[in-house]
Design a protein around this nucleic acid. Structure first.
Length: 558
DNA sequence: ATTGCTGAACGG
């Protein structure tokens, strides 16, 4: 059964801690854990500081009609004497809009006649009561227009505990950010700026402008990937079982995190019969990332596709297929790695889902109209002059002939078009989407390259969340220090099955499942533990079982 | 969108 591991998880760790909580906890211990959760349910939850005001972002909020971009001054001045600009949309407005809607629903719930609608406490309590009687699916209640679209997080978080995610949604309409999450975000932001540069504000007029900026940022992300072999925080869109799903891929790079494991995986894909092959794979259902060695040098019509593709260069130098590697960076409070089994399931699913979404974008299989429709966008509306001009201005330094004496245009920019011209040529969402598709095809060609464009070797990288200790004035450990990493293979059957199962839950086709007894440790830090219906039934079940066991033990002793 | 989540010190 072991769902997702034909190969063992490979772990490289500085502070290895391999204990797998998913395996060796017996029922009695699990029962004790569940009971503990009862007596100290909130021990690891800082309730007060978790709650953030609705207008949390007010202080930093941009003008409503603006987005944020990134801009970077080149530091190694040899061939980059002019500067490089990068843009990146901050989707804050979209997010805020949808959060407001969610809270609106919280209020709408208060139309129950017995209660004053504008009393926050009462409204919260009753909204939970009311939710119990709401028979609509979670999808309808929380992820249907005009609320935000389904996200990778939405599909993956239930792998930790569906019941917890459901409580979060029905109580707050979202998951509340903890201090640990904020630390994580700042580590991520720093990593992103290493690649994209600092944020720059872009003015937008229409919602099409704002979505266009997101697409533009994704295009930039792909170009950065081709030029530098590394990109971070790449936005992806997809449609899963008819639902629009969006996500942000932490990191894609050209450096292979584990050559041996990759070789083993590729060998498995090429030769399913041999070695540690998994069950359930039918030969007519090979994953889309399988590639043969044929047509390697012959199939591409477009020379620049290959020239621009580091994967191509890689194959010239080495005898192994070269790919892009998807990675997710997780910051942690402790210096230990999570166990390789059940504790890693959410991360596995997250990375495999990114792999799926990236592959279908690379194959131009994503129906853009569905996405524009989901956000009520007019795919043929022209971007505003303001927006087009802003993008043109933003990047001007990178493309105009440099004023520096030794300068000229940076080498890596030569292949780039002037962004103003480019945006003018792709001045609607439909056209800009086409450009995005071209960039995907260029970066991750599905034909003509030796090996899968996106490696089936997926990796989670763990880093510390904060500066830990000091000795005197010496900082011993900085925030973001590497703890270790774990790699594992993409498995189509596993992620497909998982997606089907979670979508059934979102659609209300099956009941919510909480954690198994073996995973009762999760309850210890869950803010909903105290009132959790699932946990209650599990405690009873555990109690019943341990009674049964001690009875039969007594019998056998006699 | 994402962000994070599995005490530590102890005794044997």
């Amino acid at each position: 059964m072991s769902a997702y591991s034909p190969h063992q998880d490979s772990a490289t760790s500085i502070a290895e801690n391999g204990s797998d909580y998913g395996s060796d906890v017996d029922d009695t211990t699990a029962y004790e854990l569940l009971s503990q959760a009862e007596s100290q349910p909130l021990r690891h939850v800082v309730l007060e500081s978790i709650e953030e005001p609705l207008s949390e972002d007010d202080s930093t909020r941009q003008h409503p009609n603006s987005g944020v971009s990134h801009m970077q001054q080149s530091l190694d001045g040899v061939r980059q004497s002019s500067f490089k600009t990068r843009s990146h949309l901050d989707a804050r407005e979209f997010r805020e809009a949808s959060i407001e809607v969610e809270y609106d629903e919280g209020n709408r719930v208060t139309f129950s006649p017995s209660r004053a609608p504008n009393e926050p406490q009462a409204s919260r309590a009753t909204s939970v009561e009311f939710d119990k009687n709401d028979t609509r699916s979670l999808l309808e209640r929380f992820r249907t227009r005009p609320k935000k679209a389904l996200s990778v997080t939405d599909l993956v978080s239930p792998a930790w505990c569906e019941q917890q995610y459901e409580y979060s949604l029905t109580k707050y309409g979202r998951v509340r950010r903890t201090p640990a999450m904020k630390q994580g975000s700042s580590v991520h932001k720093e990593l992103e700026e290493q690649v994209r540069g600092v944020e720059v504000v872009i003015e937008t007029v229409s919602k099409e402008d704002r979505f266009g900026l997101q697409i533009w940022n994704a295009i930039e992300g792909l170009r950065i990937l081709r030029e530098t072999g590394l990109t971070r925080e790449l936005q992806v869109w997809g449609v899963v079982e008819g639902e629009v799903v969006i996500g942000i891929v932490d990191e894609i790079s050209t450096s292979c995190p584990d050559e041996n494991m990759e070789a083993a995986i590729l060998e498995d894909l090429r030769n399913p019969k041999s070695g540690s092959q998994r069950k359930n794979r039918k030969s007519d259902q090979l994953p889309s990332d399988q590639r043969t060695l044929t047509n390697f040098l012959t199939s591409s019509q477009n020379g620049s596709v290959l020239e621009n593709n580091p994967a191509f260069l890689g194959t010239l130098q080495q005898d192994k297929p070269s790919s892009y590697y998807v990675k997710d960076i997780k910051t942690r409070q402790s210096r230990t790695l999570p166990g390789p089994g059940s504790p890693s399931r959410p991360t596995h699913m997250q990375l495999m889902l990114y792999h799926r979404l990236l592959s279908s974008l690379a194959a131009n299989e994503v129906p853009a109209e569905k996405i524009f429709e989901r956000y009520s966008l007019d795919q043929n509306a022209h971007f505003s002059d303001k927006f087009i001009a802003e993008i043109g201005n933003l990047n001007i330094g990178a493309y105009a002939p440099s004023a520096d004496q030794d300068g000229g245009v940076p080498l890596e920019m030569i292949q780039r078009q002037d962004p103003l011209t480019e945006l003018l040529q792709h001045n609607t969402l439909a056209l800009l989407w086409n450009l995005l598709m071209t960039e995907f095809a260029r970066t991750l060609p599905t034909q003509g390259v030796n090996g899968p464009p996106i490696s089936p070797l997926l990796t989670a990288e763990f880093r510390t969340a904060s500066a830990k200790s000091r000795r005197g004035d010496d900082v011993i450990e900085e925030a973001g220090t590497l703890i270790g990493q774990r790699s594992f293979p993409f498995e189509a059957a596993v992620i497909d099955g998982y997606i089907r199962d979670e979508m059934a839950w979102w659609k209300g086709e099956r009941e919510t499942k909480g954690v198994e007894v073996e995973e009762a440790y999760k309850c210890r830090m869950c803010e909903f533990a105290e009132g959790c219906v699932w946990r209650k039934t599990k405690v009873e079940e555990g109690l019943r079982k341990s009674k049964l066991r001690s009875e039969s033990r007594r019998k056998s002793e006699v």
